[in-house]
Amino acid sequence: MMKILVVDDEKEMRQLLKIYLQQENYQVEEAADGSEAYQKILKNDYDLMILDVMMPLMDGWETIEQVRKVSDLPIILLTAKGAIEDKVQGLSTGADDYLVKPFDAAELIVRVKALLRRAKKANDSDEWLKYKGITLNLAERSVMYEGQMINLTQTEFDLLEMFLSHRGKVFSREQLVELIWGMEFTGDDRTVDSHIKNLREKLHAFGIDKSFVKTVWGIGYKVE
């Protein structure tokens, strides 16, 4: 049974999410703030986390930053803010997806299933990808560059795997949304741009030129 951690300072919201998820046979644990969530993640294994932004003690942004130091756990950011800047900030911080309150139960479940499906697909693989000093271990979902470990989120890893598996192929934003998130994704395809930016910056921090992932103007992205 898949285990999901629900993090929200509002008890009513945690209970609502728990009802939706348990109806789909997910095991659910709760945390009332980011600090409690972080401690739970250090001690337990979860398949996914649903995380609210506006919380006391440790808000969603800080929680993501702390969690990403120890885990590539898939994260859905739950926010009452619908502005594109807030969505971009969430994705830039390390979330894999976002959902704006008030949300529809069916949309929540679709997004949860899409993220879990991607994680399972990755865990079922035992292949390696190597290119220009970069090594992807698809079973462990780890990335090495010249002996140094690069920590990527699940979405960043999926994008890099897609590019390295199809070197030279140009992927449009729409294609990447379909391949990475699935046909059911209802978000803005500018989400792709945020994740590409994060991926470039993380690779660049280890000496890989930002043009490694090339922008093909008017079309999309590729790796030569």
Rank of each mutant, 00 (worst) to 15 (best):
T93Y: 04
E85A: 11
N123Q: 15
I109C: 03
I64C: 12
K113S: 09
W128F: 14
T63R: 00
K132E: 14
V100M: 03
M55D: 04
A114C: 02
L57Y: 10
A105H: 09
P102R: 00
L129N: 01
G82M: 01
R141T: 12
I109F: 04
K113R: 15
T79M: 01
R118L: 14
V100D: 03
K130L: 02
V112T: 14
N123A: 13
K81M: 12
M58V: 12
K101A: 06
L138A: 05
K132G: 02
N123C: 07
Y46Q: 09
V143W: 03
Y46P: 13
F103T: 04
A105S: 15
L48H: 10
D124C: 03
M149T: 13
W128K: 11
F103E: 05
W61T: 04
I64Y: 04
K69A: 09
N151F: 09
L138F: 05
Y98T: 00
E85P: 08
D104I: 08
W61H: 11
K101L: 04
L48P: 10
M58W: 06
L136G: 04
G133Y: 05
G133P: 11
A122I: 10
P74C: 00
I76N: 05
D96R: 11
T63C: 07
A105P: 09
D126S: 10
Y98W: 03
G133E: 05
Y98P: 01
S71V: 07
A119T: 14
A106W: 07
D47A: 01
W61A: 01
D126K: 06
A105G: 13
L108T: 06
V110N: 15
T93W: 01
E127Q: 13
M54Y: 07
R117T: 14
I84E: 13
V70P: 08
A80T: 10
L116N: 09
L99P: 00
K101G: 06
K132S: 12
K87I: 10
L138G: 08
F103W: 04
M54G: 07
Y98Q: 00
Y46D: 11
G90Q: 02
A114R: 07
N123T: 12
T79Q: 04
L57V: 15
Q148F: 11
A106R: 13
L51C: 08
G94D: 00
G82Q: 06
E62M: 07
L108G: 04
W61M: 08
L91D: 05
I50W: 01
T63H: 02
P74R: 00
L138K: 08
P74F: 00
M55P: 15
E65Q: 13
N151P: 01
Q89D: 08
V53C: 03
T135R: 07
I76M: 06
D86N: 12
G147R: 02
A139T: 07
I109L: 12
M54P: 09
T63Y: 02
